[in-house]
Amino acid sequence: MIRIKTLPLGIIVVAGIFGGISIAKAVGYYETTSSKEPARFKTGELAGLPNPADIRGSYTWLDLERVFGIPAAESAAAFSAPGHALNPSDRVSLLEEIYLAILPKGYEIGTGAVRLFVSLYTGLPLEVEEGNVLPDAALAFLASRPGMDLAVLQRYAIPGASSVQDSAQSAKTEAPQAPQDSAATQAVSSQALAVSGSGTETAVATGTGSGTGTGSGTGSGRAVVGKTTFGDLYDWGLSEAQVESVLGYKPGPRSQTVRDSAAAAGKEFSDFRTQFQALVDQAAP
């Protein structure tokens, strides 16, 4: 028979917690902060490259420079707001707070916008979250890069802001030099950007090189986008077996989006999107 009184139990609880933490630290499993190393694309020609979708709010502009090769000082300046000059060592999570009062309702400049910015800069694919826009200076910075499609950039302008073309022109006058490309940027010869802002999905290719973007067949009006659920795929004529063969695992419930399912399985939606789109196009009447 073992009895435990208040004092020993208190000691065991406190010692158990701190002892456990010490053991976890000793075996190297007690990180309380992000490693600042985003997940990498696992498959396809982008395998091994950093995934902008995994950029966290705790990243600083310097982290982005180190990982994606985007000059920290320029990108921090491009996201600075009037009265809020950003330093390269600032976390990107600051943006949400800064832009909250500035932007019209329904639009956001935060970590999602930084992911978008990185995606546009590097050409690495990204599923863009609805409502994300970029500051004028960031668009101008991107527009100054060779081969950038201004029409694409214009989609991410803050409503009522000056046109990207004007911003780009003024940016070129002020800062004519193009920034150094990173390994990640150089490795991507084209941009395939899936846009889900308005619900009418369009994949665009804004090539900086050969321009082999993964255009989606939207002719049928059945575009596989971030919001597409397994139910949508079935309604568009795909069988559960087809879906499972693409995923490589059993699909979730009808109401689950393919993107959420991919994220839960630790995979990229972009890994499946093209294959699903091809099957949907084939099945289209």
């Binding site: 065991i12 609880v13 158990g16 917690i17 456990g20 976890a24 990180e31 997940a39 839960a264």
Partner: peptide
């Protein structure tokens, strides 16, 4: 368990604390 990754915003420390709490 299924993908070897953590839910966004969760860190290794949460898992370590969950295991400690589980033992207690």
């Amino acid at each position: 368990a299924s993908a070897g990754t953590l839910v966004k915003k969760v860190h290794e420390s949460s898992v370590a604390l969950a295991v400690i709490a589980l033992a207690l």
